[in-house]
């Protein structure tokens, strides 16, 4: 008999990540099951804000939800390991490592199992860069006291560690804040620069910074999962694995395109000089170590997550 599932996310409809991840997955699952499984897709926060997606999936308001661990950092603590500064180099490397620890490692047993959800699709976004208005980031004095928008969490710590001043504000206010000097720059994934339309206001971007990342993940509720026939479960996982492998490469290509777009908009990408980059990397390793220690102190498995994730990145 036909199965219909509700899929919810908070991306604006037509967002490139939706096109790269969930739409092809839904289409392919429907195709391989001969239309036995179909989906109702609710994009753009129609069923709730990003932070509510976990609860909504647990309560079966949605069967499959865009559950980004960063938005539920109180419930998915160890996932942040993949978003720490310097955690990985490329999107595919980060994606593989996160899937590994979330399916077979400590992130799975700590973040997914207790929350009664199962990870289907995940992508680690390319590393965040620092974009500024007045001067490129080439040395410590260039960031000292510079006001940069941060989304909180480990990013606050990252910015403070390198001497910048993190400023929190609502995302829609970023444009105005930048245009009036309330902010001197942003710590952003490059695609957000375009999403918030702030490329005209910014002049410089780091080219090789590793200032953190973001995990985009779609998960299915355990109850919904258990109701599915085994054959459908197999198809869903197969398609998910295929897309997880291909989408990260597409995200990397997208990143190159975005960089070109930003260059066309007049943003200059400058690599941090080697000596400076080395000092920054050392400082940021402290951020990761401190993160793990804080979690251990709260009885969570911070050090274990860090060790497992680092090992997975090396593989």
């Amino acid at each position: 008999e036909p199965i219909k599932l509700r899929v919810a996310d908070s991306f604006p409809s037509g967002h490139y990540l939706v096109k790269l991840i969930i739409q092809p997955w839904m289409a392919e699952v429907t195709r391989r099951t001969d239309n036995a499984v179909t989906f109702d897709h609710y994009p753009g926060q129609q069923l709730g804000k990003a932070a509510d997606m976990l609860a909504l999936t647990q309560n079966e308001v949605a069967d499959i939800g865009y559950i980004a661990p960063a938005y539920v950092s109180d419930k998915m603590v160890t996932s942040e390991v993949a978003m720490l500064p310097g955690a990985f180099a490329t999107s595919c490397q980060g994606t593989r490592a996160y899937l590994e620890v979330a399916r077979n490692g400590v992130v799975g047993t700590e973040d997914y199992a207790p929350n009664r959800i199962r990870l289907l699709l995940a992508i680690a976004l390319p590393q965040y860069q620092i974009l500024t208005i007045k001067a490129p980031v080439l040395d410590e004095p260039d960031v000292k006291g510079v006001k940069l928008r941060s989304t909180g969490g480990a990013q606050d710590l990252t910015l403070r560690t390198i001497g910048a001043t993190p400023v929190r504000m609502a995302a829609p206010e970023t444009y105005e804040a930048l245009s009036r000097g309330t902010l001197d720059g942003v710590l952003f994934p490059l695609d957000s620069v375009i999403a918030y339309d702030v490329q005209k206001l910014l002049k410089y971007s780091t080219a090789n910074g590793r200032f953190g990342s973001f995990i985009v993940a779609y998960s299915i509720g355990d109850k919904a999962w258990k109701r599915l026939p085994a054959a459908v479960q197999t198809v869903m996982m197969q398609v998910a694995d295929e897309i997880n492998a291909s989408a990260c490469a597409a995200v990397e290509r997208q990143d190159a395109e975005i960089r070109q777009k930003l260059k066309d908009a007049g943003i200059q990408f400058t690599a941090m000089p080697d000596a400076f980059e080395k000092r920054v990397t050392e400082k940021l390793q402290d951020v990761a170590a401190q993160w793990a220690k804080t979690l251990d102190g709260r009885g969570k498995k911070g050090s274990q997550a860090l060790a497992e994730f680092s090992a997975a990145v090396q593989r």
Partner: peptide, 21 residues
């Protein structure tokens, strides 16, 4: 139920100050 759950598992938001939820 949500409050008790958050209290029992000691949920805090990630960040420099771990705000309890």
């Amino acid at each position: 139920r949500r409050t008790i759950d958050a209290f029992v598992s000691g949920d805090v938001l990630s960040g420099a100050i771990g705000w309890p939820t």
